[in-house]
Structure formats: structure tokens, C-alpha cells
Design a protein around this nucleic acid. Structure first.
Lengths: 143, 143
DNA sequence: TCTATATAGTTCGTATACGAAGGAGTTTAA
DNA sequence: TTAAACTCCTTCGTATACGAACTATATAGA
């Protein structure tokens, strides 16, 4: 990953893709011991933020396509990370909950994310960290 | 894409993923009329930078896994965007070249990328643009 | 109340990603 | 020179992504 052409392309599409690619790959390695993928970890964090969200709410919260979410939830149910509870009032809804297996690892898993974030920003000053996050949030929320 | 929780997560892994997701989705729409995917466009830009690279060189240059590259090149050959030329001296090598079909669209396709980049950075000042790119390049090249 | 519309999830098809293993060709070293 | 080590590329398996079509359910409005 270290050897970019000397003039790292002056292209935001490329820079964002490769910065994400690297952060994703590093975090992926950290999660291997847990048997979790990055996306599955994200789903758990989302549910710990607000337990019992429906699949639609979760997708909205985490900016995930419903088709993508449907697949990952199926695998997470099979692996025992989450449970789907049908709603009595509205039979279309599925309320998603983390399992005990997941909750037991909550502290460790959140710690892993913090470690990953520190690793990404280890060479940045406090001011730069704040600015960087603001820039990214602006890109995401723009329009 | 606009409705993040008010406190956009203070998590770099998430911010990088979603900023990339948005940039990728926007550029994807721009490329639909050409029948090109984002990755296929990237491959063409790589070859225009240095025509005739081997698959390995191209993957190294664009930071692409060889397995990913093998698949996309196969589809691009099939669609007539690139050609593979075996090397006479080293029979393991495949020299990749853009087709006339691709070269005819070169100006337009490069313009599309520029438009996409401008869109991403439209709300940033000159100083912020430079800083943002430096931050991303630092993340990519770190270590 | 009954139909048009809208929403929640699933499923399908295609295209990345990428670890792992494999086949073919090349280099290195004893 | 020849076997071990390397390199290039392909193939396979699994997991995202996401547009599109589909089923089931709910709600709005005539």
C-alpha cells in the first residue's frame, strides 16, 4: 500500500477510495479473531446505539442499502450475532436485537474500533483530526 | 444520504466509508451513459497514464488486488475497452492496452472525473481542498 | 369499503473486493 | 543443470454493494 506514484493522483474519487480501502483492510484484520466482518461490526454498533430498530431504520441510520442489509442480517442471525423479532402491530416490520453473544463482546469490539481510529489518525494533530472529520462529514452530508 | 444522525459518528472508519460511498455513487451515475463502471474507468485512466502496463504493474499502480483486476480486465476485454497482449520474452506477462473505442472517449471520460471531483469539493475553499487531499494521501501512504 | 399508493423485506443479477490455492513460466543457487 | 523459490495470472469461495422486480402489509382517499 505504501508505494503510490510519487504524485499521488490529485483525484478525490481515487483518494477517498484508497483511504477507505486502507482503513477497511486494517480494521478487517483486527476483526478476524472475532469472526466478524466490518459490516457486521457496524451493524452491532448501530444496534448498541439504538436497540430494536427495524431493518429499515437501521439501514437509514447506517446508510445501508436494504438489499445489502437483508443479506448481512441473514448471515448475522445464522451466526448468532442478532435476532429478528416480528412486530405484532405491523407485520411488515422486523425489530433487530443484538444477542448475548454479541453483548458479551461489546466492550472489546468498541475498543477495537477506537484502536482502528487512533491508528488511522496517529500522525495527525488535534486540530487536523477535527478538520479531517469535518471535511468528511461535509462530503457525506452535502446537498 | 442527507440524514445522518445529528452527531455524525466521530468514527473515522465510518466517515471514510460513507464519504467514499457517496463519491462512488455519484460518479457511478455519471458513468452509466458510457456503460462503464467506476473500476473500469479507473483502469482506463491508469492505462492512459502509462499504456501497455502488465496486469501486475497496473494493479500495483492503482492499488488493486490481482484477483479483482483479473476479473475486471476479463469483462473489459469482452466489452472491447482494452486488449491483452502476451509478452514474447516472458510468457507470464500480459501487456494491457486501451482500445480505440476507449481512446475515442478519453477526453469525455477524463472530463467526467474532473466534474465528479469538483462536485465533491464544491463547498471547500482552495486551502481546504489542498489540506483535505493531503490528509487523505497521508492516510493512504502512512507506514 | 375498496382501490390506488406506499412501505418493509426478500430475492435476483452483476460487479467489485480479496484471501487462498493452483498452473505455467522464470530465476536463483548449489 | 536442475530443483527450490519466485512471479504472473487465473480460479474459487465468501461477503459486500446496489438497481430492479416481487410479495406482503398498511394506509390514504374516493
Amino acid at each position: 500500500m505504501a508505494k503510490l506514484p510519487d504524485d499521488v493522483p490529485d483525484c478525490m474519487v481515487f483518494l477517498l477510495a484508497k483511504a477507505y480501502q486502507k482503513a477497511h483492510a486494517n480494521f478487517k484484520k483486527q476483526l478476524i479473531p472475532y469472526g466478524l466482518t466490518n459490516l457486521q461490526h457496524l451493524v452491532l454498533e448501530g444496534l448498541w446505539y439504538k436497540q430494536g430498530m427495524t431493518a429499515a431504520q437501521l439501514g437509514n441510520f447506517l446508510i445501508l442499502d436494504k438489499a445489502t442489509l437483508s443479506g448481512v442480517l441473514e448471515r448475522m442471525v445464522k451466526a448468532g450475532w442478532v435476532e429478528k423479532k416480528p412486530d405484532d402491530k405491523d407485520k411488515r416490520l422486523l425489530s433487530i436485537h443484538t444477542s448475548n453473544k454479541a453483548d458479551d463482546l461489546k466492550k472489546d469490539l468498541i475498543k477495537e474500533r477506537q484502536t482502528a481510529n487512533e491508528e488511522i489518525l496517529k500522525n495527525f494533530s488535534i486540530e487536523e483530526k477535527i478538520l479531517f472529520k469535518r471535511f468528511l462529514a461535509d462530503v457525506i452530508s452535502c446537498e
